[in-house]
Write a protein that binds this DNA or RNA. Sequence first.
DNA 1: TCCATGGCTCATTTTTTCTGACCCTATGAG
DNA 2: CTCATAGGGTCAGAAAAAATGAGCCATGGA
Lengths: 319, 319
Amino acid sequence: MMRLPPLNALKAFEAAARHGGFVGASEELHVTRGAISRHVKLLEDHLGVQLFVRQAQGVRLTPAGTAFLPVVSEAFGMIGRAAEAVSSDASELRILCPPGTSIRWLLPKLEDFRQAHPDLNVRLITDFYPDSGFDAIDVDVGFSVSNWPKRKPDLEVQTLFPILLTPACAPDYLRGKALKAPEALTACELLHETRSHGDWKAWIDAFDPAGVVSTAGQEFPNIDIATKAAVMGVGVVMADLVLCRDELETGVLVAPFSDMVCKSPDGDICLIGGRDKWQTPKVEAFRLWAYGVAEADRAAVDKFVNANLQADREQSFNS
Amino acid sequence: MMRLPPLNALKAFEAAARHGGFVGASEELHVTRGAISRHVKLLEDHLGVQLFVRQAQGVRLTPAGTAFLPVVSEAFGMIGRAAEAVSSDASELRILCPPGTSIRWLLPKLEDFRQAHPDLNVRLITDFYPDSGFDAIDVDVGFSVSNWPKRKPDLEVQTLFPILLTPACAPDYLRGKALKAPEALTACELLHETRSHGDWKAWIDAFDPAGVVSTAGQEFPNIDIATKAAVMGVGVVMADLVLCRDELETGVLVAPFSDMVCKSPDGDICLIGGRDKWQTPKVEAFRLWAYGVAEADRAAVDKFVNANLQADREQSFNS
DNA sequence: TCCATGGCTCATTTTTTCTGACCCTATGAG
DNA sequence: CTCATAGGGTCAGAAAAAATGAGCCATGGA
């Protein structure tokens, strides 16, 4: 196979042909006419063919040039488009995140990430699993335990924070009832996400309050609405210490059994991503940021749990 | 549209990917490994994507690289093939020439041209007209008068030499008959090319010898065989002063009516070519050479005609 | 453990490319 | 007819890009 012609000369040729003259080409390529002239001559020498007919008012393609141009144009077009695709692919970060975590945790913080990486085109897909395969997303901010088949490609996993659960309700709601022991929940509205009653079930399984059944209560389309309902005094939600941190810290929600904290059956919230994309700059940047952001949540969770174990211990000591 | 990536870096990338390592690429491109390394890095920076995973025993393409490579390869392939085509087209000279002129005039001289232009790939197409259009040939060494449609593209024409006709036969054949006057040809075998009896007809029309009909005589597949038959003493051929110059000058053929010379109905032998290719180096080179070679034939024809007009005049004077 | 392979880096050439000033030619207006 | 303009060609010198080559580092197999 013939050695490729000088590629930069080809670029000059293509531009000159497109503009019908060396002046136009020189402006497009930000060089002088002389440079274009030399490039074209070099190419002509290489091919052994005259590509242009030089005339007073510009240049015209020779038959050889006419045959050559469309191929070169098309080839450059292909390369340009492919480069664009590869490049924009590199600048697009597709994040998958389940609705609850998305609305209550990721979304509010994401603007900060966007501003820290204005070159990245962030796309949040709020769902439990992606429509197409795992290839279509760069990273999943999701549950460590799940039943959708993420395992196709080799996956990397990095834990952000644990999902710790305890019942929570509005202070007013609490005032109406005497929630000293978990058995008192039988008299309460349990607030659920439509999808599952798994969180309540896990907590009930862990602390076994007599007479409390996880299937009782009201349902809401997602945990955010359920939490807001709890704030409005509708009932008791199974609060995620991280997702409801704000409400618990500001006191719009209180945890009547704050020493009774259990892990979610969904496991932890993790970053999960294909090994092939794990080290790419965009994913790496996101991982670094997310882990940093989650630091505060991990600390808050630890503090909550420690404080209440302490309280528990003191309480035990006093009684 | 995105600006094209640095093309030489692309070349390095493509070679490296093909060889699965920078060493292979560096050998192919005759540069050091460092150079390839820099090129690839430049490209990666430009695209903002890692193209290779560096490993101890070479490199492996990343998903981005895998997507990018085939496009680049294909684009380079296109360019390479097109360059090859344009280039070889420039070095291939396709000459069309009718059989008689081809065998008796062009072909014996063509080796000289080939040696003068060893870079040119000369292709002689021996036929009256080309299979496909005039575009498929670069130049026609043919008749100025013909009925095949050469006129499609704008044509340039350059006369090489006239086609002048006079009967000729072997000296022995002459000895057997008394060919004083053209009417004596009634007793001779007229030798024709199968294709046409046009040359004899033209001569008979011009000099009007009583009783001689152009349709009489024997036929041969081409004028070369007919001429050779004449040399062997089979009959009288209508000799072209140029094509039969050798035979006439060496005396293996003699012209009994050498003062009776007429023009062929086919006109002159000319170079005929499309205007678009007329000035190309290969055609220009051939034209120059052909016109130079034909010089000797023009001179010989002039000499023959003048000498015989002279003889004619002297004969008239003597009688 | 050591060595071979293969990639990375960087200061120093070497090569390529670009510039900028000038020349030439054709065209079209005055 | 003359001049101005547009467009291309050329060249020496300057600037930029690329290549070198010598040393470094990591890995994987003998």
